[in-house]
């Protein structure tokens, strides 16, 4: 099994306990023989999407920006499971994570299809990873924010032609089980 983890934590200070727990869980997967591509996004040089559509119309499948997003695009097409990790920043996922998500579009085609009674883009690759979310919350995060973020990832799964298999909340203590082994 191959797992790609996009860790969009944006703050050392707020997330150190949870992040340590996350990395311990990933180590368990590694020891089981699974392949884990772990991307700590805040440490990577990744530019914002320019909306140029070169990846659709000039160099199909390839982004014109050559930066540390490229490894993520390569991992995306090989992985069985894609895990989005984020703390809740201003009621939504962090800009750090959203920036990387925007830059996934080279792995989709510009062409539109009817999928589950809605218009969506075709995936470029046959293999589509199963999606998971690990959301770090603290006492300031309200239920409507969590619900909205869960609904957001359901929409993302629909757009990717995939499923959101798990959506787990990790509170500020970082003591919960990430249950990556359940994948």
């Amino acid at each position: 099994m191959r797992v790609c983890v996009l860790n969009g934590f944006d703050s050392e200070e707020m997330t150190v306990a949870q992040e340590r727990k996350l990395e311990q869980e990933l180590e368990v997967l590694n020891q089981k023989g699974d392949t884990v591509d772990y991307f700590k996004l805040r440490d990577r040089k990744i530019a914002y999407c320019l909306g140029c559509w070169d990846c659709w119309l000039k160099t199909p499948g390839e982004c014109r920006i050559k930066d540390e997003q490229e490894d993520i695009l390569k991992s995306f097409v090989k992985t069985d499971h894609l895990v989005f990790v984020s703390n809740v920043r201003l009621g939504f996922v962090t800009a750090t994570l959203k920036k990387t998500m925007d830059r996934l579009i080279p792995n989709f085609l510009p062409y539109i299809r009817v999928y589950q009674n809605e218009f969506h883009h075709y995936p470029r690759y046959e293999k589509t990873p199963i999606l998971h979310t690990r959301l770090i919350v603290d006492h300031t995060v309200e239920r409507d924010e969590i619900d909205l973020i869960e609904d957001y990832f359901k929409r993302v799964a629909l757009n990717f032609g995939s499923d959101l298999k798990s959506f787990k909340i990790i509170d500020g203590k970082g003591e919960e089980d990430y249950e990556f082994a359940d994948m």
């Binding site: 999407c49 800009a95 959203k98």
Partner: peptide, 20 residues
């Protein structure tokens, strides 16, 4: 702003975070 991957473009979220 336009929809980017089912929400606001990342640069817009970054601006909101700066405003906060």
């Amino acid at each position: 702003y336009p929809l980017y991957v089912d929400a606001m473009p990342g640069i817009v979220k970054a601006f909101f975070e700066r405003v906060a």
